[in-house]
Write a protein that binds this DNA or RNA. Structure first.
Length: 429
RNA sequence: GUGGCUAUAGCUCAGCGGCAGAGCACCUGACUGUGGCUCAGGGGGUCGCGGGUUCAAAUCCCGUUAGCCACCCCA
């Protein structure tokens, strides 16, 4: 038996429905903010990702699916969405007059050790705002994330963490201070952190080991070395969020793994998912567009993980995931006699109901008793059963049974659809 | 990439050297045209895969694949 490759998964049943709900929610919420969708390829030249995400990051250095095609071009399956969106923007010379708002949704690929909430093919949606350096843009992006969680009934299950990483002017100063501090205290730190001092000092602050957590209590704070512009920007973002009634926690130690972030970074995290706790995360990346050969456009955005949202929603009470019962929820289920004439009539009537936007199931297999057809109808979750037996055939009528009430009536065939309408059977539900 | 745990029916799991099991689900039936509840019966297994130890392996050992948990990293 061939099984699915490690770290990939199939979505079916309740999980597939949640996937679908999340996709449609992103469309609804993002369009509410005037954000346009862009669908980019899922593979690109490898260099696009190494240049944008950062050569030294884990994603680029060890997690990319990179391969040579038949002409020897080095290609990569995309590990995230932002690089492609920026490439699109630059390549197509998209005019950005005020703010350009884009969103994407689709599969991403990273060669990581799989774990719940972490897959080798996973699905992300994300938004990117280009052309606006203002705190208002940051605040709106964060608010879009919040609105989406709210749309999914998750706003009570996620906390917003926010931080500022400073800019090209003040971050180097901070990194100097931090470097001095870390080298000073190197003896107290775990092996991982000692490795990170030169490679990725910011990450040290996020270490969870007790000794390190303790050591970092006295470390220099980013917030204290922000330049005046960054400080004002950060204060304004927080002010706008507070005005909007959006609760957040300022967390000094929040950092991001991708090189391109500046100033605002944020995460919506949940307590319900274990180690993989971020469901939506993002920040500002003002230098990236220029770094990829485009105009010097400021940008801010986020990405969200669909598998993690599905997992979170699965853990919530069933009330928040309607439509979970029944393998297929058609409104009408046909039960008919064995003879060929009855089957022809059932097939024909079922097609007429479907043409009238009434979802209808028709048993396609032979040799089923009325009893088992009724059982199947019950299990399918259908509202009504339409019966075509010998009696009905003689009088050119149909019997309609309301499964929840147990009431049954026989009407002329021409009255079938009007009767279903009267019973409140929905069209196109 | 590192460490730990796990793999038995469609699902959840018990069995831990001696006949392959339970609950749920599924199918059939309970006065020949009617679901749910109840009752009776039934189908379903390469015990993840490969090797080894043993008279005998689901059970013990080694390997392998996959999943889970933590680290790492991240959505």
């Amino acid at each position: 038996m061939i099984q699915k490759v490690r770290g990939t998964r199939d979505f079916f049943g309740p999980e597939e429905r949640l996937f679908c709900r999340i996709e449609s929610a992103t469309g609804r919420v993002f369009r509410r903010y005037g954000i346009q969708q862009v669908r980019t390829p899922i593979f690109e030249e490898a260099a696009l990702f190494s240049r944008s995400i950062g050569e030294a990051t884990d994603i680029v250095s060890k997690e990319m699916y990179t391969f040579a095609d038949r002409k020897g071009r080095l290609l990569s399956l995309r590990p995230e969405g932002t690089a492609s969106v920026v490439r699109f923007l630059v390549e197509e010379k998209i005019q950005v007059t005020d703010t350009l708002k884009l969103f994407y949704l689709g599969p991403m690929f990273r060669y990581e050790r799989p774990q719940a909430g972490r897959y080798r093919q996973f699905h992300q949606f994300g938004i990117e705002y280009f052309g606006t350096p203002t705190a208002a843009a940051d605040a709106e992006v964060i608010s879009v994330g919040h609105a989406l969680l709210q749309e999914l009934g998750l706003s009570g299950h996620a906390t917003l963490l926010i931080n500022s990483l400073g800019c090209a002017a003040c971050r180097p100063v901070f990194l100097d201070h931090l470097g001095v501090f870390l080298k000073d205290r190197a003896a107290d730190l775990c092996e991982e952190c000692r490795d990170r001092i030169d490679r990725n000092p910011l990450r040290c602050l996020d270490c969870k080991r007790d000794g390190c957590v303790h050591a970092y209590e006295s470390s220099p704070k980013i917030s204290e070395s922000l330049c005046e512009l960054c400080r004002r920007h950060d204060a304004e973002v927080k002010e706008l969020l507070a005005d909007a009634g959006l609760a957040f926690t300022a967390r000094d130690r929040l950092v991001r793994g991708l090189d391109y972030y500046v100033r605002t970074v944020f995460e919506f995290v949940t307590a319900a998912l274990g180690a993989q706790d971020a469901v939506i995360a993002g920040g500002r990346y003002d230098g990236l567009v220029a770094a990829l050969g485009g105009p010097d456009l400021p940008a801010v955005g986020f990405a969200g993980g669909i598998e993690r949202l599905i997992e979170l929603m699965s853990k919530l009470p069933a009330s928040s995931t309607p439509g979970a019962a029944g393998a297929c929820s058609a409104s009408v289920f046909f039960v008919c006699a064995e003879d060929r004439a009855a089957r022809r009539r059932a097939f024909n009537l079922a097609e007429r109901l479907r043409a009238s936007q009434i979802s209808t199931l028709l048993p396609l297999s032979d040799g089923k008793s009325f009893k088992s057809q009724f059982r199947a109808a019950d299990k399918s979750g259908a509202r009504v059963v339409v019966i075509l037996g010998e009696e009905e055939a003689k009088t050119n009528s149909v019997s309609i049974k309301d499964l929840s009430r147990g009431e049954q009536q026989t009407v002329p065939e021409s009255d079938l659809i009007p009767t279903l309408d009267r019973m409140g059977i929905p069209r196109d539900a």
